[in-house]
Design a protein around this nucleic acid. Structure first.
Lengths: 116, 116
DNA sequence: GCATATTGGTTCGGTTCCGTAACAGTATAA
DNA sequence: TTATACTGTTACGGAACCGAACCAATATGC
């Protein structure tokens, strides 16, 4: 069940969601941070630093720092892989799931309000 | 003709578009810059620095700096209002219209590919 | 055991962005 | 004319982010 948009609708949808994020100026996420968070929640685990870096086409420190920030926000959690202790497995949290649930609701609401 | 999305679809759509932006690492725009650009192209003119700052709930220098950057990228243009030379009128460019057209096409394509 | 490879993290100098405050130019009103 | 208000820009110190290079810990192959 794909969705069908006209160009002005696509831009208006993007604009509405974006504007809401910018306006309330809560400690919001960078585009990269958001991409990382969504990858963790939408793509099948396990997720590692190296894997995420390759997937997003960015360097490792970008992932490490983003995980630091989002870890403090309790949006993701990290722990060592017991089977190969070099790896760090990144996993979801209840808080992160709630955050994305609210974000999705926001997108849905803006989509519903789209003009002709 | 509003659109209807389920939460997983909303997040997948956002993720796909976001990921494409992050990946190609072209000199991409900040969330704020994107919000400004879309406001200029979607809301009726005229657009001023002060008006945009109020609309986005940010300070004036944020707008000035974003316009500097996007001016260099030729996405927007600035000129003094001849009727009140204190005002700066921000207007669209062909290059900016093309940029947003491609961006909209990207959103539409990702929406079309959405799974059930 | 020992050399090598792999993984995540940290350090470094540099760049960009931020908000506050001060500033220059323009309009308005007395 | 002169004082005041308004608009956009610039300075400034601080914070966040960037990629390259390096480091510590762990695994693998001989």
């Amino acid at each position: 069940m794909s969705i069908s948009l006209r160009p002005s609708q696509a831009l208006t949808l993007w604009h509405s969601v974006n504007l809401a994020e910018v306006r309330d100026s809560a400690p919001d996420l960078t585009m990269r941070q958001m991409a990382i968070l969504l990858t963790i929640y939408l793509d099948p685990p396990p997720h590692t630093v190296r894997g995420l870096a390759k997937h997003l086409n960015v360097t490792k420190p970008v992932i490490t720092r983003a995980l630091d920030t989002m870890g403090i926000m309790k949006l993701v959690s990290r722990h060592r892989d017991p089977r190969d202790r070099r790896n760090v497995i990144i996993s979801r949290t209840v808080n992160g799931a709630n955050y994305l649930e609210r974000f999705a609701d926001n997108i849905i609401a803006k989509g519903r309000e789209l003009p002709h």
